[in-house]
Design a protein around this nucleic acid. Structure first.
Length: 111
RNA sequence: AGAGCAGAUCGGAUGAUCGCGGGUCCGCCGUCGGCGGGCUGGAGGAAAGUCCGGGCUCCACAGGGCAGGAUGGUCGCUAACGGCGACUGGGGGCGACCCUAAGGAAAGUGCCACAGAAAAUAUACCGCCCCGAUCUUUUUCGGGGUAAGGGUGAAAAGGUGAGGUAAGAGCUCACCAGUUUCCCGGGUGACCGGGAAAGCUUGGUAAACCCCAUCCGGAGCAAGACCAAAUAGGGAAACACUUGAGGGCUGCCCGUCCGAAGUUUCCGGGUAGGUUGCUUGAGGCAACAGGCAACUGUUGUCCCAGAUGAAUGAUCAUCACCCCUUCAGGGAAACCUGGGAGGGGAACAGGACCCGGCUUACAGAUUUACUCUGACA
RNA sequence: CGCGGGUUGGAAAAGAGGUAAUUCGCUGGUCUCAUAAGCCAGAGACGGGAGUUCGAUUCUCCCACCCGCCA
């Protein structure tokens, strides 16, 4: 069985990395999210999450981040290796359920 | 029973699967460290706003004056406060109770639009009265007295009555209201109660300047300390004490300190990044004691988040809570009781150095004391 | 996280206790064969809630929103 953990190695953790990904990555948009994909040399697949202040207060922002990480964790095996991915939440999506998030992102990643 | 008022407590619970970050122990690889496993604990009453106060850290341990800021009934509590408690004055409510930036306007300055005669030194508009002139008289003009009457305004120069007067006026008197001073009694005090005298009365505004009293050094954990790739060439210490540029100490001044350029010695400084500060503390809980209370003391007991692109989530089940629909029983009905079935809801909100407060947001639940109205006894 | 500044018609922007200017835009009229320009007239605002005051856009306090600085 594929492991479903989500450790520190699998996160994008520095501002520099984010800037690199923003510059080099390919962007895909949907209603609520923007996904940026960029190759990275390390061999790992990594996730970064960006939720701006416009989206809501701290509770809402935290909830969105958790939902996005949950999605990444559970559908890791279907994602390509050696890719950095940053998901940006565009608006207040804290009322969405986890399943709604899954559907929308899965759609988005097919493109 | 209804309406209300002041507090206090809580802020869903349990389980399963997957997952996150901390501490600790064990094992393996092993230079830091990494990997795996076990155990343990992991957001709030406001964690929020950042409105105050303090601890802590650095700035040269910070002295004086001016400027600036804050507070403003009294007494207390406290590490401290702009907080809290008790009490006093004022205002509101039938009441429980609530609100109160509540020192000084008889230090000075300013302002008080429009209206009004006048907005503070009453320069008198109408009116009333006296005198003089004019004239047959009413009239008209001039000089003066008068704040009792008028209308205006948010606010009009103590109120009522009597005397008094040419007309009037605290001009005088009685009562009442208020101010200041003094005395007596009570209280730690704000102040309260009683009495006497004075001048006879003084507009409002200090969240206008200001005066008085008290307090305040500046920055802030992105403080500060340590390790240290890259890059750039200097940096630090000691001595000497002449000129002292320039800089720092709070905005300015005084005052004071460092100090370029000299000689000698030494090798360090520092960005990315990392470590530390970082959680045992004015700490929580319980009992007893002191105090009206805020709070304090003693004893016992407990260890309860330390992340850093930032950890608490997702899915499911059960049980409680609320709402809606439907069903059964009782009833004439309103409705009451039961809980079978289905559906929905569950607030405000997330630590970022730590505490004490304040303020603001908040579905609902539990509970205590008290007040008013109605009924019964 | 900490520290500062601001909010006035649709847009910009003065006013600092009593009447809210001004410019552009908008609407109607006039002029023109018609449009523009010009001229005349008009509508449309003090971020919300308390307090001080006779009276707050202005002063004080509390919220909301926006902007900036410190890596």
């Amino acid at each position: 069985m594929e492991k479903q953990s989500f450790g520190k190695k699998e996160r994008v953790r520095k501002r520099k990395n984010y800037l690199d990904i923003y510059q080099r990555g390919r962007r895909v948009h949907s209603n609520n999210f923007t996904v940026i994909l960029s190759p990275n040399p390390s061999g790992e697949k990594r996730l970064g999450v960006a939720v701006g202040k416009k989206v809501g207060n701290a509770v809402k922002r935290n909830r969105i981040k958790r939902l996005l990480r949950e999605f990444f964790r559970l559908s890791k095996d279907r994602l390509p290796d050696s890719k950095d991915m940053v998901i940006i939440a565009k608006r207040d999506v804290s009322s969405l359920k986890y399943q709604d998030v899954c559907l929308e992102l899965a759609e988005l990643l097919k493109k």
